[in-house]
Design a protein around this nucleic acid. Sequence first.
DNA 1: GCACAAACGATTGTATACAATGATACAAGA
DNA 2: TCTTGTATCATTGTATACAATCGTTTGTGC
Lengths: 225, 225
Amino acid sequence: MEEDVKEGASDKYSLRGRVFSRLREDILNGKYDEGIELREIAIGEELGVSRTPVREAFRQLELEGLIRIIPNKGAYVVGISDKDVRDIYILRSRLEGLAARWAVDHITQEQMEEMEENVYLAKFHTQKGHTEQMFELDNRFHELLYEASGSKILEHQLKDYHQYVLRIRKKTLSSATRGPQSNLEHEAILEAIKNKNADDAERLANEHMINAYKNMIDKGLVKPE
Amino acid sequence: MEEDVKEGASDKYSLRGRVFSRLREDILNGKYDEGIELREIAIGEELGVSRTPVREAFRQLELEGLIRIIPNKGAYVVGISDKDVRDIYILRSRLEGLAARWAVDHITQEQMEEMEENVYLAKFHTQKGHTEQMFELDNRFHELLYEASGSKILEHQLKDYHQYVLRIRKKTLSSATRGPQSNLEHEAILEAIKNKNADDAERLANEHMINAYKNMIDKGLVKPE
DNA sequence: GCACAAACGATTGTATACAATGATACAAGA
DNA sequence: TCTTGTATCATTGTATACAATCGTTTGTGC
């Protein structure tokens, strides 16, 4: 089994890695609002470490675009604008389409089975209204699709974007109407891949993203630009 | 004028920023071969700085995928496989197409003028066989396209990929046949944008990347998969 | 009261000291 | 001879000390 690309960078067993993961999570979950200044000492004290690992984590967070470091001044949490969300969803729609197309030829038996199980379970939890499980299953479905593409580059890229819009997605799926529809679309993508129909797979995955974005607009989570 | 996304991260006036830029350049130019171990002290001594800025630069290089850090062990230069190159060119072909499409609506007068100048100059230097200038102009043409897309997200992404395949591209353009053809394709993209023809712009930019990749295969720079 | 400059404080930038970890070499035993 | 344990060393991980920089405040002159 190949190791996760991101794992290599986050390195959860070093202090720096833990600080990095923790800060990223906190930022994505909205603990630190947009524009907030992060002070090295304060973060260090909060997590019980010195400034060194904090600084290294900051440098990585900046490269991920989550914070902006102004030399000799400070580190500030960067927000995601509505335009960013829109751009990311359009990029994702195209790249997820590509991932689905490639998955037709590269998906493994094991991945296929997990995907089928995923779709099946999602139906169940949606009926029951288990939003937390629905959220996790949706995440996993997309990660599976990325992995099934057989391209480390594409997988890495899509996981990045996926992470990036987490904040907003967390609210989306809790709505009663999008859950079932999303499940149907997942199922259709799965069927296309199973039937080795690359064109359908690409088109369906593409539309799935567009629909997800439209849903966010309808819910008022983002402005339509 | 908005500042360069990358610039914010490289910060050329701090030691860390200089170390980062220098190491990235050295790796991309092939000074350090794939698999070579980079030692913090050695790099620090070579550049006349202590380990601290070197370490911070390492963390960023890892996130850019240029080196791989194994905890408590060392930092190793990561190579680009032929499959990676192929994947990136396919992604780029799609995303550059998107950038060209968006540029139709978002390009500024200033950008348009620089692009026209770029195409004009490229013709001149190609006739004269000035490979270094051709290389720079080609780089700039694509950066301009990214900037003209009006999307920071897309621009950032494409610049990343562009950087990533620099090693190989440096060899490509020096060949006598691809230069003129590449110029013609740039000109066609420019014309499509100028004529506000989004479909043509996307298709041409898309094909331009595919052609660039095919050329690398023909030259034997990468294996076709 | 206002303008401007100097000094202070807070924060980041860098260097260095110390701790922890992993690799290697070598010796002892099976 | 091969394996295994241990000591040693090189290298990274972390903490801390010191330097540089930016903002602000305070004080002085007009």
